[in-house]
Simulated scan of single mutants.
Amino acid sequence: MSTRTPGGDLPVRRIDRILAFMSLGLLVLSIACFFAIILGSAAKVDFASGLWPTVGVVVYIAPILAFAMLITVLIMSFVRRARANRGE
């Protein structure tokens, strides 16, 4: 049997919401860049010039940052819930 949080659910803070939506946005951006690279390689585009190097880096960096933001939100919510349960 699990313990109940005192006073019901804890309210969602603004920073939690911001980090969650930024994580989702980075994942969507990464997927869009991935498909842009697929379409660019099908069109035989020169990936060494223009905006393509940035698109290539986003595919590698954005999922890692999104995962780190999601883990941060999880840890923050676990700590906040533990403090609320310890308080009463």
Results as ranks from 00 to 15, higher is better:
Val28Asp: 08
Gly40Asn: 06
Phe21Met: 13
Ser49Pro: 00
Val28Leu: 15
Ile18Gln: 03
Leu10Arg: 13
Ile61Ala: 15
Asp9Cys: 04
Arg80Thr: 00
Gly25Glu: 08
Ile64Arg: 13
Asp9Gln: 08
Phe67Met: 15
Thr5Lys: 00
Asp9Lys: 05
Asn85Tyr: 02
Ile37Glu: 12
Ala66Val: 11
Ala84Cys: 01
Arg83Met: 10
Leu29Asn: 03
Phe34Thr: 15
Leu29Val: 05
Thr54Gln: 12
Ile75Asp: 05
Asp9Glu: 13
Ala84Gln: 03
Thr54Phe: 09
Arg81His: 01
Glu88Asn: 07
Asp9Pro: 01
Thr54Val: 14
Val73Asp: 08
Ile64His: 12
Ala43Tyr: 10
Ser30Ala: 15
Leu26Ile: 05
Met69Ser: 10
Val28Tyr: 05
Arg81Asp: 02
Thr3Gly: 06
Ala42Glu: 14
Leu70Cys: 12
Pro11Val: 08
Ile64Trp: 13
Phe78Pro: 00
Leu51Cys: 02
Val55Lys: 07
Arg83Ala: 08
Ser2Met: 03
Phe35Ser: 09
Phe21Pro: 00
Ala84Val: 02
Ile31His: 09
Ala20His: 11
Arg86Ile: 01
Val79Phe: 03
Ala48Asp: 13
Ala62Gln: 09
Arg83Gly: 00
Pro11His: 04
Ile15Lys: 10
Leu70Asp: 12
Leu51Arg: 06
Arg80Gln: 04
Leu26Gln: 12
Ile37Trp: 06
Ala84Asp: 01
Leu65Pro: 01
Cys33Asn: 13
Ser30Leu: 11
Leu19Pro: 00
Leu65Trp: 08
Gly87Ser: 09
Asn85Gly: 02
Thr72Cys: 14
Val59Gln: 12
Met1Tyr: 01
Ile38Gln: 14
Pro6Met: 08
Arg83Ser: 03
Ser49His: 14
Phe67Lys: 10
Ser2Arg: 04
Pro11Ile: 07
Ile71Asp: 04
Gly50Pro: 02
Ala48Tyr: 07
Arg14Asp: 11
Ala68Met: 15
Ile18Cys: 03
Arg4Leu: 12
Gly50Glu: 10
Glu88Arg: 06
Thr54His: 08
Ser77Lys: 08
Val79Pro: 00
Ala62Leu: 11
Ala62Pro: 04
Ala84Pro: 00
